[in-house]
C-alpha cells in the first residue's frame, strides 16, 4: 500500500498518528469544501457543515470499515448535512456571487502563494473569465462541476456520494456542461 495513499493515512490516523490526520485533512478538505459549495449555502452555514464533517470523521475513525472509501464517506456526510441545513428553518439565503469572487483576506489558502505568482503572470484574468462563465451555467452544471473542481480530482464514486447521483450519469453530464462552458467562453 502506497505510504501516502488516502487509505494509509486513514489507517495511521485511526492508530493515533496525528500527522497522518493532518495529511488526511489536507488531502480531503478540498473535496468536502467542493461538495458543500455545490449546495450554495451561505458562508456561515458552509463553514459549520465543514466543521461537523471533520468532527464526525474523527469520532468514526475506528468504525469506518472501508478506509479506501473515506472520501466517499466524507462526501456523503457533507451532502446529508447540507440537505439538513437547507431543510431546516435556518438562514437559506443563497450565497452571492460577490462573496465567492471576493474571498476574505483571512481566508486565503496555502496555495495562495503559488496562485499569487500566477496572478503576476496575468493568469488571474483568464481564470476569472472561466470562473465568471461557470457562474452563468445552469444550477445542475454548476453543482456537478463544483464538485469535480476539488483538488486532487475526486473519483466518480466520491462525486456520486457528494451529489447523491448515479456514477453513470456523471460522465455524460460533465461533457454537456463543459461544452456549454466552452460556448460561453467563446461567445
Amino acid at each position: 500500500m502506497d505510504s501516502d495513499s488516502t487509505e494509509h493515512l486513514f489507517r495511521a490516523a485511526a492508530d493515533g498518528d496525528g500527522a497522518a490526520w493532518e495529511a488526511l485533512v489536507g488531502r480531503l478538505s478540498p473535496l468536502v469544501w467542493s461538495v458543500i459549495r455545490s449546495y450554495r449555502l451561505i458562508d456561515a452555514d458552509a463553514h459549520e457543515v465543514f466543521q461537523t464533517c471533520w468532527f464526525r470523521l474523527a469520532d468514526n475513525l475506528g468504525r469506518i470499515k472501508e478506509p479506501d472509501r473515506v472520501g466517499s464517506w466524507l462526501a456523503t456526510t457533507a451532502r446529508h448535512e447540507c440537505l439538513k441545513v437547507i431543510r431546516g428553518s435556518r438562514r437559506v439565503i443563497p450565497t452571492s456571487d460577490l462573496d465567492v469572487l471576493s474571498p476574505g483576506a483571512d481566508d486565503r489558502s496555502p496555495e495562495r502563494a503559488v496562485l499569487d505568482a500566477e496572478e503576476a503572470d496575468g493568469q488571474e484574468a483568464l481564470l476569472r473569465s472561466v470562473w465568471e462563465a461557470y457562474e452563468r451555467l445552469s444550477e445542475n452544471c454548476r453543482r456537478l462541476l463544483r464538485v469535480l473542481m476539488a483538488s486532487p480530482p475526486p473519483s466518480y464514486a466520491e462525486v456520486a456520494a457528494g451529489l447523491g447521483i448515479a456514477i453513470g450519469s456523471i460522465g455524460p453530464t460533465r461533457g454537456r456542461c463543459l461544452a456549454h462552458l466552452r460556448k460561453l467562453l467563446a461567445g
Binding site: 490526520w21 469544501w33 486565503r108 473542481m149
Partner: peptide, 21 residues
C-alpha cells in the same frame, strides 16, 4: 482551468483547515 479558478476564487478557508486539524 476550473480547478485552478476554484483554488484561486473559492479556496478552503485556512480557518476551517485549522478547525479540521
Amino acid at each position: 482551468r476550473l480547478r485552478r479558478a476554484a483554488e484561486l476564487f473559492d479556496p478552503v478557508p485556512e480557518s476551517l483547515l485549522r478547525v479540521a486539524r
